[in-house]
């Protein structure tokens, strides 16, 4: 007495197979704001990677005969008070912003995801310690921390390097730009990981108790396979969204620190220190403020649109 339903032709035509990622891509493409965000992000990333090789001027070369020029064909964004091409400096600032954002987000995600996943997976005392650490870190005002690190570490490191240079005459010790970056990266990564840790912990906690995890265990799969194919892919969507938003936040944060003079220092161009310079003379030369500020705003908005779009696209059940 088989009651297995007979296959009818109407039931067999199923839609063509699509993978989760291709599916998400289709949904992302239908979202105009997200596409705009993605385009801007891709252009900025390209600029960061190759821009400095394509600009007509060096970002450091000064031309004192051509100071504070208004935007023109030869200087797209004009020149600053030292006669440096503002366009070239904005392009190089993109590299600074991306470098800081990518490295900081990478470190923060690495710390946050491992701590959060461990806390969620093992629970107990480890979970308590990690969450305690997270709360403590979140209670530190980020600006204060960066100021403190700058004030306490920058000059000892600089003078130590100067001393080494005098002793060894090794030119490596004269290059102090990377000290800026190291301090900026380090202090920003130290304060950026808690949101990732919390997010991943919450994800792992909720996924761990889902019936499909028990079902996977009942199939005899190993913990490693369950973690890699069942837990992580289900936690990935929110994490990708958070990373996209986090990149934008890190960029803005870098600019903010540089604006206040505790981030990347001149002459290395950063949107933040360019805005800071431009602010002093904006009544006379508004382009010096407008150019870096506009690019910073555009980047920030683009990342947040992209993050929103990804959020909708990566949820297979949110399909409209």
């Amino acid at each position: 007495m088989s009651v297995v339903p007979v296959t009818t032709p109407a039931e067999t035509d199923v839609e063509p197979p699509v993978s989760l990622w291709r599916d998400a891509w289709h949904r992302l493409r239908r979202n105009r704001l997200a596409v705009f965000g993605l385009m801007v992000v891709v252009i900025l990333a390209f600029t960061a990677a190759f821009g400095p090789y394509l600009t007509p001027y060096d970002f450091l070369s000064q031309d004192l005969s051509a100071r504070n020029l208004a935007p023109s064909m030869s200087h797209l964004f004009g020149t600053d008070d030292l006669g440096r091409d503002v366009f070239s400096r904005v392009v190089y600032g993109t590299r600074t912003a991306f470098l800081v954002a990518v490295v900081v987000t990478f470190i923060a995600v690495l710390i946050g995801v491992s701590l959060g996943a461990m806390a969620g997976f093992f629970g107990g005392l480890l979970d308590k310690i990690v969450m305690w650490l997270t709360d403590m870190t979140m209670s530190i005002p980020n600006l204060l921390l960066v100021v403190v690190i700058n004030a306490s570490l920058k000059s000892p490191i600089s003078s130590w390097m100067e001393g080494r240079y005098l002793v060894t005459l090794n030119p490596i010790y004269r290059e102090t730009v990377w000290v800026d970056f190291l301090l900026v990266f380090g202090s920003m990564a130290l304060i950026s990981w808690p949101p990732y840790a919390r997010l991943v912990r919450a994800q792992v906690l909720s996924i761990r108790s889902r019936p499909y995890i028990t079902a996977a265990q009942a199939l005899g799969l190993t913990n490693r396979i369950i973690l890699m194919r069942y837990v992580v892919p289900n936690a990935l969507g929110p994490l990708i969204v958070a990373v996209s938003a986090g990149l934008g936040t890190a960029m803005v944060l870098e600019s903010a620190f540089s604006f206040l003079g505790v981030g990347v220092n001149p002459p290395t161009p950063s949107w933040g220190n360019m805005i800071s310079d431009g602010l002093r003379v904006w009544q006379h030369y508004p382009h010096l403020l407008a150019a870096p500020a506009a690019v910073l705003g555009l980047a920030s908005v683009a990342f947040s649109f992209l993050g929103d779009g990804l959020n909708d696209a990566l949820n297979p059940r949110g399909a409209k």
Binding site: P17, S19, L20, R210, P211, Y212, T214, A215, A216, Q217, A218, L219, G220, L221, T222, R229, Y230, P233, N234, P316, R317
Partner: peptide, 26 residues
């Protein structure tokens, strides 16, 4: 050894088919 029994010698069918399948795996 238990993992070999799970799924290999003893099959399980769970209560809720809506949540007992991994939503992101074909």
């Amino acid at each position: 050894d238990l993992r070999k029994v799970r799924g290999g010698e003893v099959g399980f069918i769970f209560q809720d088919p809506m949540t007992s399948l991994n939503p992101v795996m074909r």
